[in-house]
Design a protein around this nucleic acid. Structure first.
Lengths: 207, 207
DNA sequence: CAAGATAATGAATTTTTGTTCATAATATGA
DNA sequence: TCATATTATGAACAAAAATTCATTATCTTG
């Protein structure tokens, strides 16, 4: 009754993770607004009251999920990019990491893809303080590398580094969405070579 | 009391358009779920009751808006693509039309960008019966042209036509989103040449 | 202008869903 | 095992927003 029981602490954490996992699945499936707290409770096999013992409300549940997953994903992305030693290799690692991470976090990516633009346009605290900084760290790493690549004469200087990043993100997101919508028809992993080829050399046939 | 008064009819239509216009702005600004029918009523300078006289409910209001705008946009897109006589020129027209249309329909594009993925994943009637067919018509036109372009030796045969379309859509969407989020910083129109260049020739410097 | 039709209004109602909290169940440790 | 603390529960409550509809205003036409 007085000591700090470690097991209790771990158990509470486990319950928290289980509820977050259930929330992730339902939010991904129905979106934030069409998901009720009871939906999450049923899926997690807890009562609504228990959810309110651990989270202050539906919004807190959502934000906790986004924060946690974004941090995990950011960490994995940085670890992958760390391996690259030059701009060309960095692009390869970026695409590889995007494939690996989005395959691993498929449910979350569906949720993120659904809600991203709304959160972005709303420019709320969650986006400003948590998601944007993590996103921008990755983006800026790539932009810097593109700048270096242009200076070194690896990349064409017609586009500026920022635009190169927009294109890289656009192409990879395009294939990602196609895969999220038709997960049975296409394998996201198999698109690695074609994404790389299209980004580096474009569609036009060489002379 | 018996005749069919044309003016009344036109007036009803005008009211309908005004309400749709107000709905478009608010939906674009706050998204479907955070928008209340009263928000729309206030913006349109009508009462909520009047909205319910013209539309059966919030959902009908949303669907009517999406249907109408998608049809308008589809018509303009086809008219633009009709001008192209070969695959290369078709890609140019695609990018041009996307710039022109999305500049003209900026508010709607914000709304569409917000809600698109949710509607797509939900695969509801609105998406299946209205939006998807219009989207697929355009997409299939482009895919066919890419197939022809590959046969003619204009495009590299490493990618299949479908993948070329994914890449084209990805690149253009990437620049579109960047512009929707920072409309003051960048001009979407100015990105025409760079989008074309990146899609055709990629980022790598030529020997 | 008056009678009758049509359209607009917004307060009241209904529905939905997020949140609370009294009660029950379970775990702890002396 | 018993007293006490902790945690879980879900029915009850509150808030928010969609929808209705009795009332009022406006228009039409003889």
């Amino acid at each position: 009754m007085k000591k700090t029981p470690h097991r209790k602490e771990r158990e509470r954490k486990r319950h928290r993770e289980e509820i977050l996992g259930a929330a992730e699945e339902i939010f991904a499936d129905k979106g934030f607004h069409r998901t009720t707290v009871e939906d999450v409770a049923v899926r997690a096999e807890f009562s609504v009251g228990t959810i309110y013992n651990i989270f202050t409300g539906k919004e807190d549940l959502y934000q906790s999920l986004i924060k946690q997953r974004c941090q995990e994903i950011s960490d994995e992305a940085h670890a992958a990019l760390d391996q690259a030693t030059n701009p060309l290799f960095l692009v390869e690692m970026f695409i590889r990491a995007k494939i690996d991470i989005f395959t691993k976090y498929q449910a979350f990516m569906k949720l993120y893809t659904r809600e991203r633009m709304g959160d972005r346009f709303a420019n709320n605290e969650l986006w400003r303080e948590t998601v944007a900084p993590l996103y921008e760290q990755i983006r800026d790493r790539m932009v810097e590398a593109f700048a270096k690549g242009i200076q070194e004469g690896i990349f064409d200087s017609l586009a500026d580094p920022w635009e190169l990043y927009i294109a890289l993100e656009g192409i990879t997101d395009g294939f990602l969405y196609d895969w999220l919508i038709h997960p049975e028809k296409t394998s996201f992993k198999d698109k690695y070579a074609i994404m790389l080829k299209l980004f580096f050399d474009g569609v036009r046939k060489r002379a």
